[in-house]
């Protein structure tokens, strides 16, 4: 069993989080690992049902995502989250939760300028937001705080989806989240590792 990790996408609506995540998911599955995809839109219909788009509600929504991701990480299951997650401090809290649960956080910033996003307008939301029909729309009438030190930056206005996805996938191998063929496989689950650590500690071998 491998190490738990979370690929955390952040970026404005239409910046490419869902599109890139599909490719990353495929690569993880190809390596024989399982993967849990937590797409913001989907999570909002379940554990975040009823939450809106105020700062408070957004923070609650993202914290729930982060907590879930940390639990999966603890058991060594890879996670992909694809939600706008506009606030830096909450994303950092999530990073904290994930790493203290034994996971690796791989933050992916989907960077894209507003003009391109308005041109794309995949869901027709920008049009409405600009017309004032949607309040608190991130990037138009609500703040977005870009990450300072993301593991990956995808410039989705210039790159193709495939190029962006490849950057993320390369990073996963580089960080040891995924193993190339012939690379050594982790022989312990998290629980077994704890047991062995305890045994070696008692012997004074750590």
């Amino acid at each position: 069993m491998g190490k738990g990790f979370t690929v955390w996408f952040t970026g404005l609506s239409g910046s490419g989080k869902t599109a890139i995540s599909k490719f990353v998911e495929k690569e993880i599955l190809k390596q024989g690992r399982e993967v849990e995809v937590l797409d913001g839109d989907v999570v909002r219909t379940h554990i975040s049902k009823g939450l809106g788009f105020s700062k408070e509600d957004r923070d609650a929504h993202i914290s729930r995502l982060g907590w879930l991701a940390s639990r999966f990480s603890h058991y060594g299951v890879p996670v992909i989250t694809a939600a706008i997650s506009p606030y830096k401090d909450i994303r950092n809290n999530c990073r904290q939760m994930i790493t203290s649960a034994g996971g690796i956080m791989v933050e992916v910033y989907c960077e894209c300028d507003l003009d391109t996003l308005i041109k794309r307008d995949v869901k027709g939301l920008y049009k409405k937001a600009i017309a004032g029909e949607i309040k608190n729309f991130t990037g138009v009438s609500d703040p977005y705080e870009a990450p300072d030190n993301p593991e990956v930056v995808c410039d989705t206005a210039k790159e193709t989806v495939e190029e962006s996805a490849q950057k993320v996938i390369d990073k996963l191998y580089e960080l040891g989240c995924l193993k190339k063929e012939g690379e050594t496989e982790e022989p312990y689950s998290e629980a077994e590792k704890k047991e062995i650590d305890k045994r070696l500690e008692a012997l004074g071998y750590l």
Partner: peptide, 12 residues
């Protein structure tokens, strides 16, 4: 790199 501790086993 990335820094991590591990227990060498027959795998290594």
């Amino acid at each position: 790199n990335p820094f991590d501790m591990f227990i060498p086993t027959s795998v290594n």
